[in-house]
Design a protein around this nucleic acid. Structure first.
Length: 457
RNA sequence: GGCCUUAUCGUCUAGCGGCUAGGACAUAUCCCUCUCACGGAUAAAACCGGGGUUCGAUUCCCCGUAAGGUCACCA
């Protein structure tokens, strides 16, 4: 593709909040589309609303993209272009496409009642009142009579353009060829096309409006009512893997056909076809994300898993490296995202790795089909084995002996009390894993304690 | 309310005139098993309604219905 018909796209968030998952998906679709066509993608921070903008939100957006590892070819801030926007406003006015409009007294008064202040005059676009048709890559032909849009405001003053003007002028100036954005902008498109045509200069861009991400109740997901789950950083902080997150997001509203669902970004770029993007909104289902994430955790290398564990496991300083190594498979097996380690820690599911358990209800040491005497006897047999193997530290031998004993005496009658003695819990990983993770000396102590508790019963 | 958009299992979706309507998540049951988790298997579960077009509609058209978006001196 030659340089002058190269595809140019942009993602244009406003820094009035953290990056929304819907925004992330828009950006992702832009990114995928652009990479596939070997085009250029621009990140343009739309900071024209001076009152609501915050630098921290811009930072947050950058951080989110850094996490997702989506890199933009250009980084722009719309406010840098205010002088240019002014020139275009002047041009539109002199050509009769826009005019300065006095605000009506009654509107001024009404706004005051609501606590808002309106400018005495603003710049409005002179609506030619015609039917605008465009081809949306996802939706096909869309056609709207712009008459009922009226003469809409495009700037508060020559130096304060608002969204429609800045957005269109920048798209024209930056050579944007494809505008891929959320469906909430579909209704804005006709008036933006009106401005685009009034400015002239360039053939208009091709539009594609991607469906919204919906809540359980099928409405647009919003931070206000749906909370932090709409923020991309939430997923980063909860220990989701960016590849899983991207895979999930891309498959919300699109898929390559076929039955495979685990696709790397590179594979998605290869397979992507914007015309196959779903038209209807998609309900955001965190269960499915969790499944994707678990699949990606399984795909991680041991050292990657260890890194995440070190980041998310509470009281990490209390675990030795050796123990962490041993703990890794057990932990990874039980989570879909790494922050679940914190949840497990909070409910005490990790206690027994660090602390010798106490048996508040020793009856639970006894297997359901057994009795106290038998259990004490069996634990003593285990105790003997542990004592014998204590200095050899050969886990395989140790386990072999215990398992032989279990087969002899009945698995439940050996394995249950052993596991309970080691964990102090009715639910826990299997005793072999526990023995593997715990020091043999510690295991012996726990078995002795359990016997003691039973005797005192 | 006006305008725009959408409509396949509970959810994400495959399907692009003829299929026992396929897969995944979630659910249930079973297997594995001392418990939990993992894993494996099986099951239940959908074409919004009504008219056309057609030999034949989930698929094409129209009308309803429902849902969503948007109607700012926000983006």
């Amino acid at each position: 593709m030659s340089e002058n018909n190269k595809i140019i796209t942009r993602f244009a968030p406003s820094p009035t909040g953290f990056l929304h998952i819907g925004g992330a998906r828009s950006a992702l679709f832009n990114y995928i589309f652009t990479k596939q066509k070997e085009g250029k993608i621009i990140l343009r921070i739309e900071d024209t609303d001076l009152e609501r903008n915050k630098e921290e939100f811009t930072e947050g957006i950058y951080r989110a993209f850094e996490w997702l590892d989506l890199k933009f070819d250009e980084n722009k801030k719309q406010s840098d272009n205010f002088p240019i926007h002014r020139k275009y406003l002047e041009k539109l006015i002199s050509e009769g496409h826009a005019y300065i409009s006095k605000t009506k007294e009654e509107d001024l008064l009404e706004a005051k009642k609501e606590g808002k202040t309106l400018r005495g005059e603003v710049i409005r676009f002179k609506n030619p009142n015609k039917v605008i048709s465009f081809t949306d890559l996802i939706r096909g032909e869309v056609s709207v009579d712009t008459t009922d849009l009226g003469d809409f405001v495009i700037a508060k003053s020559l130096d304060e353009p608002v969204f429609h003007l800045s957005n269109v002028v920048d798209d024209i100036l930056m050579g944007v060829t494809h505008i891929i954005r959320g469906e909430e902008h579909l209704a804005n498109t006709p008036r933006q096309i009106l401005i685009w045509e009034a400015v002239g200069e360039r053939e208009r861009a091709t539009y594609a409006h991607i469906p919204l991400i919906l809540s359980e109740t099928r409405e647009k997901l919003s931070k206000r009512i749906h909370g932090e789950i709409v923020s991309v950083e939430y997923y980063k902080n909860r220990g989701y893997l960016k590849d899983a997150f991207i895979n999930f997001l891309a498959f919300l509203g699109w898929n390559p056909g076929g039955e495979r669902e685990i696709y790397s970004l590179g594979e998605i770029i290869k397979e992507f076809n914007i015309e196959k993007v779903q038209k209807g909104g998609a309900v955001f289902n965190i269960e499915k994300l969790n499944w994707f994430n678990k699949e990606y955790i399984k795909l991680q290398s041991e050292s990657e898993q260890l890194e995440y564990i070190k980041e998310f496991l509470p009281n990490i300083e209390k675990y030795s490296d050796e123990m962490l190594q041993k703990l890794r498979p057990v932990l990874v097996d039980r989570i879909s995202y790494y922050a679940e380690l914190k949840d497990m820690d909070e409910v005490g599911e990790l206690d027994y790795y660090l602390n010798t358990p106490t048996y508040s209800n020793p009856n639970e040491i006894i297997w359901k089909k057994s009795n106290k005497e038998n259990t004490i006897l069996n634990l003593e047999l285990i105790e003997n084995i542990l004592r014998k193997e204590n200095n050899e530290s050969n886990l395989d031998n140790l386990w072999e002996e215990i398992y032989k004993l279990a087969e002899e005496k009945g698995k439940g009658d050996i394995l249950w009390p052993l596991r309970y003695a080691l964990s102090g819990k009715d639910k826990s990983p299997d005793p072999k894993s526990l023995l593997y993770i715990l020091d043999t000396k510690e295991a012996l102590l726990r078995v002795e304690n359990a016997i003691e508790s039973l005797r005192n019963l």
